[in-house]
């Protein structure tokens, strides 16, 4: 650094950096762990909340959105390819570690749900992280988990009577909780200054 002057770049390049810094890895992991704890708690209230919805069982899918949050939130916050899968898979693993009613298969769910969110970010080529991308990632994440759910657990049930409404409710819930609430959460975090090492904490979309 002898005699050298480093000036802050006025116009930062818009092309995203694809390599993962340590802070990207650890922050994504922390998001995964934090949502793992949320999953654990949500698993416990799920039964209670789902009970009054039993008059129309597919309606319980409106509670699914919470499980799709880590992938979408991590993607919006860290903005790296793979962040959604890493955070979502880890969240599932942590909920398993704390005791999950779904067993080892939950890891598969975590990865698939993360991949679902990832598709949303891939479709916008990891370049925009505003409302459009948040909603899109919410939709793709919701679709991923409802396909998995309806073919694994509810394969016997009717297509129009169960599978379609289940998918619709899951996607709606995912858009609302993972997409809209997720982006609001990232922006609220940015306002606290906690995201100063991330592009999502510096720019205003």
């Amino acid at each position: 650094m002898t005699g050298e002057v480093t000036r802050p770049t006025a116009a930062r390049s818009t092309a995203p950096r694809r390599t993962w810094r340590t802070v990207d890895i650890v922050t994504t992991a922390v998001l995964g762990v934090a949502f793992g704890v949320v999953f654990w708690a949500w698993n416990l209230v799920f039964g209670v909340l789902a009970a009054p919805l039993d008059f129309f069982p597919p309606l319980s899918a409106v509670l699914n959105g919470v499980y799709l949050m880590p992938g979408v939130v991590a993607g919006l916050l860290v903005r790296k390819p793979g962040a959604a899968v890493f955070a979502s898979g880890l969240a599932a693993a942590v909920s398993l570690l704390l005791g999950s009613p779904y067993g080892g298969i939950i890891i598969v769910y975590g990865l698939v749900q993360g991949l679902g969110g990832e598709i949303g970010f891939l479709l916008t080529r990891y370049r925009s992280f505003g409302w459009g991308t948040a909603v899109l990632a919410g939709v793709t994440a919701g679709l991923s988990t409802s396909i998995l759910d309806t073919s694994l657990y509810y394969a016997d049930l009717g297509f129009w009577a169960y599978k379609v409404p289940y998918t619709v409710f899951t996607v709606l819930s995912s858009v609302l909780l993972a997409g809209v609430v997720g982006l609001l959460l990232v922006r609220a975090l940015a306002r606290t200054g906690a995201l100063s090492s991330f592009a999502s904490g510096r720019s205003r979309v």
Partner: peptide
């Protein structure tokens, strides 16, 4: 808690 955890993640990365 999340604000604290994300801040801690940055310090931990350092």
């Amino acid at each position: 808690l999340l604000v604290g955890a994300v801040r801690r993640a940055s310090r931990l990365a350092t």
